[in-house]
């Protein structure tokens, strides 16, 4: 058998799951399983206990609450991909999801699982950083909230305790007609990104950028919010020259090098992805402000 030997637990409530996490040594949470199962099959992880979250009711679903989409951590990527609420209020999420694995993996994979796995090249963490998502985490003393900006502590290391689990993600909404784009370069469709960029922006009545968020994935050990690029864009009219000057900051990134691409290539590619995303986001914002 491929996976190592472990004890299997399938709690029926968040409280039970938290209690198990608190009492068991070397336990792993199983969400959609699209990352944990390969790691088990290859024995990259050797947990003594696997706690399956799939039988806990109430952890999945998408709701609209005061200016935010609130998404249950166990919501399948498929459900988000086909959600009318997502399409209407957070279209960049639907666009980014099309780059997440394949139909078969999105049918099982969850948003909470992807955020907690925190692969630096994964699309959803990059997007959550750009959207200033808030994460609800439940532990023995109840729920607490944190900004997604504070969630990645380092390479594949989320800021959650060993006795905590993520229950909900809130994505603050951007105004109707905002511009957005998710760009990614990967060797094959569905692969993890060598570099990706999420851009969300609005234009003022004169066509200048009056609000913008830029995040990059796949380049560094964690997704990166690009405040230097945002500052260079604010108040300016979009142009290829502006985008080129603003994205020069990508050359300063502490980029990863690996068998797919050296660090210098990732720095270069990050700028290309951001510029492509800026062009498409501005086109959408222009179209949106006229409609």
């Amino acid at each position: 058998m491929k996976p190592p030997s472990f004890a299997y637990h399938d709690p029926k409530s968040v409280e039970d799951a938290v209690a198990l996490l608190g009492s068991l040594e070397n336990a792993k949470l199983l969400a959609g399983g699209q990352s944990l199962m390969p790691m088990l099959n290859m024995r990259f992880v050797l947990p003594d206990h696997v706690i399956d979250l799939n039988n806990i009711p109430g952890l999945a679903g998408v709701e609209l609450h005061d200016q935010a989409l609130v998404i249950g951590a166990m919501t399948r990527q498929r459900e988000l991909e086909f959600s009318d609420l997502v399409a209407t209020h957070c279209p960049i999420l639907a666009e980014a999801l099309l780059q997440v694995g394949h139909r078969q993996t999105r049918n099982r994979g969850t948003i909470g699982g992807s955020l907690c796995h925190l692969d630096p090249a994964a699309e959803l963490p990059t997007l959550c950083l750009a959207l200033e998502a808030q994460v609800e985490v439940v532990g023995p003393s109840g729920p607490r909230g944190l900004m997604f900006a504070d969630f990645p502590l380092g390479y594949m290391t989320p800021a959650i305790g060993a006795d905590e689990l993520v229950t909900r993600i809130a994505l603050p909404l951007w105004p109707k007609g905002h511009g957005y784009a998710f760009e990614e370069f990967a060797r094959r469709h569905g692969d993890f990104a060598i570099a990706s960029a999420a851009v969300v922006l609005t234009l003022d009545a004169q066509g200048a950028i009056d609000r913008v968020a830029v995040a990059i994935g796949g380049v560094c050990a964690t997704p990166m919010r690009m405040e230097a690029i945002e500052a260079a864009l604010m108040g300016r009219e979009p142009s290829p020259e502006l985008f080129r000057a603003a994205t020069a900051a990508c050359k300063e990134l502490d980029a990863l090098g690996d068998v797919h691409a050296p660090a210098s290539y990732r720095q270069h590619l990050a700028g290309v992805m951001v510029r492509r995303a800026l062009v498409r986001a501005c086109e959408r914002a222009s179209a949106g402000s006229k409609s």
Partner: peptide, 26 residues
Amino acid sequence: EHGVCGACTVLFDGHSARSCLMLAVQ
């Protein structure tokens, strides 16, 4: 057996899924 080749795909409650990336107990 790590979710790349797709040969093990089945329909799970009507939707395609990699059967090598699920436990039988699930």
